[in-house]
Nucleic acid binder design. Structure first.
Length: 325
DNA sequence: AACGAGTCCAACCGCCTCTAG
DNA sequence: GCTAGAGGCGGTTGGACTCGT
């Protein structure tokens, strides 16, 4: 006893929309709005499924959509939000007026992903490949780690070479202390030079770590407190050098035995756990302990992550706290 | 000019949650 | 309370287009 079907599947047209169909849909919605997608194709005289009409409208016909190329600032916003939300395209698109989730997704898959890989950054975790290799080194015994790192470096260099031969990059450009400026090419230049140093530094790091702290190399906890000895390395090669996204740890709840917060884990595993989830969970936990003032204090500390003055974001705090804007 | 490889993006697919009946 | 469609979302695909040989 469900609802009546939205359309007769066999009489439904599929594939590219014609300008006539676009006109029919646009003028119908202009007059009647988008309240009931099931009725829209029928009333507008279209042989389309309601779902198809909704998709066409939301992704293409809506008058408030931008159709041009993504700006550098938009691209940076996508990268930053993706590092927190993962593939939650609708959330990311909500921060970019005039862009749809489909736009953002397509742009990410066709451009941003490749750019990040070319910079030596893993687009899934947003960590530099060298940082990931350093993490691997903390989880494996030295012989295994060294072999894996060599292999990874080989793959990595092939990829960079491939990218370089396809898209010449201006190596003469400056690389300032703030490489992620408005011009993404500056950042690319910075990363290219950084990559040239990576091989030597990793090898150096391995031999130094194995010599100085054999217990660290043998540890099998990727993110325990000793693994944080890779912090300087990680920070040096972090995606955004001035932006310690994954380093924050709420003071009162940080368990020394297990200080990988659910949020920082989620960044690696790409679960849907967000900073806001973390904040709410933390608040509930502290309240359970009957410590209201501590709960409020932690909420304030965490809110600072989204403070416009914080180096973490250059987005309005309100927008980030309310991704559905 | 012809062809193949690579790129881009609109549209589709399938899954999930919500809700009308 | 149950069922099945609507709406929303992320992943994938097909075809148009571009570029290099």
């Amino acid at each position: 006893m469900g609802r009546i079907p939205c359309c007769e599947k066999e009489n439904v047209k599929r594939g590219q929309w014609t300008p006539e169909e676009d006109n029919k849909l646009s003028s119908y919605i202009a007059q009647h709005g988008t309240r009931n997608w099931r009725l829209i194709p029928k009333n507008a005289g279209l042989q389309r499924c309601g779902k198809s009409c909704r998709l066409r409208w939301t992704n293409y016909l809506r008058p408030d959509l931008k159709h041009g190329q993504f700006l550098d600032s938009e691209e940076q916003t996508i990268v930053k939000l993706h590092s927190v939300f993962g593939n939650r395209w609708s959330l990311i698109a909500a921060q970019l007026p005039g862009r749809t989730d489909n736009d953002v997704k397509n742009h990410w898959n066709t451009k941003v992903k490749k750019k990040l890989s070319g910079m030596g950054i893993d687009p899934v975790t947003h960590k530099s490949f060298s940082h990931l290799m350093a993490e691997i080194a903390t989880t494996l015994a030295p012989p295994q780690a060294a072999h894996l790192a060599e292999a990874a470096l080989g793959c990595f260099k092939d990829e960079v070479l491939h990218l370089l031969t396809k898209k010449p990059i201006n190596f003469l450009g400056q690389h300032s202390a703030a490489p992620l400026g408005n011009d993404i090419n500056n950042y690319i230049n910075y990363k290219q030079e950084e990559m040239d140093r990576t091989s030597d530094k990793i090898k150096l790091g391995f031999s130094k770590d194995t010599h100085d702290k054999p217990e660290m190399i043998l540890s099998n906890k990727a993110w325990n407190s000793t693994a944080a000895t890779s912090a300087s390395f990680a920070m040096q090669y972090s995606v955004f050098p001035t932006m310690p996204v994954f380093q924050y740890s709420p003071s009162s709840l940080c368990n020394k035995e297990d200080d990988a917060s659910q949020w920082s884990q989620s960044v690696c595993t790409r679960s849907t756990f967000t900073p806001m989830d973390h904040q709410n969970q933390l608040y509930e936990k502290l309240k359970e302990n009957g410590d209201d003032s501590e709960a409020t204090k932690e909420m304030t500390n965490l809110s600072n992550i989204f403070n416009p003055d914080c180096v973490l974001w250059d987005l309005p705090a309100d927008d980030l706290n309310n991704p559905m804007v």
